[in-house]
Structure formats: C-alpha cells, structure tokens
C-alpha cells in the first residue's frame, strides 16, 4: 500500500538559516504518526511544507497521491488541518463556521447541513451551535477546530500541537476525540512537545531536533532500544555532587540536567538504599519515557 503521506529529503531555509534539514518519513493509512520535538525544532515548518503552505527548498512530498506543492490544492480536498493557533472565523457562530468551511470544499449547502449534528456532537457543542466563537473556552475552540477539519471527511488529519495551551481536563477531551478518529481508521499526523501525548496517541513517531529526525519508531520500541528500564530522578540540595560521586558506580548511566540527576539502571534498589536517610536529597522512581530518549540522544531536556 502506498503511504498516505511521504516526504523525502526536505530542506527549508529562512534567511539562510536551515529550519528543516533533510527530513524524510512516511505515514501509512490508518496510522497515528507523531512528530515530537522542542519548540523551534522545525515541526510546524515540516507540516506547512507537507500541506503546500510553504515550498521546501529541496526534497519531494507526496500527500494523498498528489505531488506537493504542485497539486497542493487537490490534495487539500482530502486533508483536514488543525493549526496550532485557532483561526476559527470570529464573524460566525459555531455552526456557521462549520457550514462555511464546507463551502470552501465545494460541498452543497444541503450536504453541509446534513453533517452538522454529527460534527457538533463530535465537538461536544450540540447545544451551542448558535453561540459566538468568542464565548467558547479554549478547549471548546480546539474541539470545534478539529470538527471543522472533519467537514470534508478527510483521509488524513494534520494536527499541529493539538493540546498546547489547554488545561488538563480539556486535553483529555481532545485526546478522547483523537482516539475515536484513529478507531474510525483516520490517518493522523500530529506534532507535539508533550511526551505523554505522544506516548498515549501515536502508533509511531519521530523525534525531531534542530531540523533533523534523530530517532524514529513506535514509542515503546524507542524507549526499550535506547533506555534502561528504570529511571531514578535524584534532586534536592547537593544532589548533583552526591550523584556524581556516590550514584555513578551504582547505575548504568547518569545524566545531569539542572539540579536533577537522571539515573538509568536495571534495578533501582541499590541506589535507593544509598540515598537512604540522606537529609536533603530526594529520589523519584519511574519507568523510562520518551523524554529520556530525547535527553539521551540530544543531551538535553525537551522542555523549553
């Protein structure tokens, strides 16, 4: 089967600065593919290239069997887009936003009206079809933007940081919506700098940093490949010096970030015993996650 989206050797420069530096990937139908990386890694620019909203300096892109950017308009008939910053039309109500969006896709008024109950229900806004956009909360706006992206029943959905700026409850509602879409067989491409989001939603992801893809695979596989099973975060006054002298021989790997020491090991017990009743140092034991992968590969945190 052909991938729904593929990119080969994408390069994009802005004013001589390389923002996307030789990016290649492919997304299969029905897959949720994540592009994970800190702000400024080139995630959004990669998406914009894929949608034909900017032209890569070199490289090739195929989207829904169309060549981008040459046939970007044709491709966008098959695509839904949820941008990072909500750009719902503030001159329209909730329902009018969806209806007008359908018109941009050349759908008839009747077809647009017919899909309205389903889309409003998806957004959880069935009772609010006639309210103005500026009365909606951030979470409602994001859900409406996702519903808007479904107006044309797309094959593939692009979501640029779908939960950035939302409170935890609203994030969970968005995640539920996205999981429903993957269950329906939609292909999702999302960018995020949240580890938990990537781990929770993505079948496969790539980690991007400074315009390059530095790792790719299913989240669990990436973690197993790169990271020891147990992580102990050691923090508190003097943690750095203590970890350097006492912890280092007890663990297989040690990374320092700020005042926290990340200890990677197969067994946490010897380390926890050594900390024992230390007056100022605290320890937290947790399973390895994607952030550890990022720290290992790049030597720094993904949080910015």
């Amino acid at each position: 089967m052909n991938p729904v989206l593929w990119a080969e050797g994408l390069v994009k420069r802005y004013d001589g600065r390389v923002v996307v530096d030789g990016v290649s990937f492919a997304v299969n139908g029905g897959e949720c593919f994540g592009i994970l990386g800190p702000n400024g890694a080139g995630k959004t620019t990669t998406l914009r290239c894929c949608l034909g909203l900017t032209t890569a300096d070199s490289g090739a892109i195929g989207l829904a069997d169309f060549a981008i950017p040459a046939q970007a308009r044709d491709a966008r008939y098959r695509v839904g887009v949820v941008p990072q910053f909500d750009n719902l039309d503030p001159d329209f109500t909730v329902e009018e936003n969806l209806l007008m969006w359908a018109r941009y896709f050349d759908l008839s008024h009747r077809a647009a009206r017919a899909s309205m109950p389903r889309l409003l229900a998806f957004a959880g806004l069935s009772e609010r079809g006639h309210v103005r956009i500026d009365t909606l909360s951030g979470g409602m706006k994001r859900r409406l933007t996702i519903a808007r992206a479904l107006v044309n029943d797309p094959d593939i959905l692009f979501l640029d940081e779908p939960t950035t700026g939302l409170d935890p409850q609203a994030r969970h509602l968005v995640w539920d919506g996205l999981k429903r879409l993957t269950k329906e067989g939609k292909t999702l491409v999302l960018t995020t700098h949240f580890m938990d989001e990537a781990e929770r939603l993505c079948d496969r992801l790539c980690v991007m940093d400074s315009g390059r893809i530095i790792a790719e695979g299913p989240p669990r596989t990436l973690i197993e490949q790169h990271i020891e099973p147990v992580v102990v975060e050691v923090y508190g006054e003097g943690a750095r010096a203590w970890a350097d002298s006492v912890a280092r021989p007890l663990v297989s790997r040690l990374e320092m970030t700020g005042e926290t020491a990340f200890c990677y090991t197969d067994a946490a017990e010897p380390l926890l015993a050594a900390i024992g009743e230390h007056p100022t140092i605290r320890a937290m034991r947790r399973p390895a996650n994607l952030e550890d992968v990022f720290i290992k590969i790049t030597g720094r945190e993904i949080r910015d």
Binding site: L51, L53, R76, V81, N87, L88, P90, Y104
Partner: peptide
C-alpha cells in the same frame, strides 16, 4: 487580527 485568510488557506483555497 482575525487570521481569517490564514485559516481559509487550510481549505482548498489559495
């Protein structure tokens, strides 16, 4: 201000 044009570009409009 409203970024309406930017939004419309995500549909098949140029």
């Amino acid at each position: 201000m409203q970024r309406t044009w930017e939004g419309i570009l995500h549909a098949p409009m140029t």
